[in-house]
Amino acid sequence: MAVTGDLVQMGAYIGAGLACTGMGGAAVGVGHVVGNYISGALRNPSAAAGQTATMFIGIAFAEALGIFSFLVALLLMFAV
């Protein structure tokens, strides 16, 4: 029984570690959003100010998914 429990915990921890890789995807996504925003802003600086809010919305969407993977990791660590 103890062995099974340890196995389950090991699986949970490994799963948590794997889930954290998802945050890398979010990082790529956020970087992509901001990078494209800046390259667009450099091409047409006058239109940049109006799109800052849109950029933040984009960041929020991209980042939310990273947060989800972090959440999964936390759930595996502490709740399973």
Binding site: A60, F61, E63, A64, I67, F68, F70, L71, L74
Partner: peptide
């Protein structure tokens, strides 16, 4: 997503 984003960010 609206709620988890905020809570997750803070917790993280």
């Amino acid at each position: 997503s609206h709620s988890i984003r905020l809570a997750g960010n803070m917790m993280a």
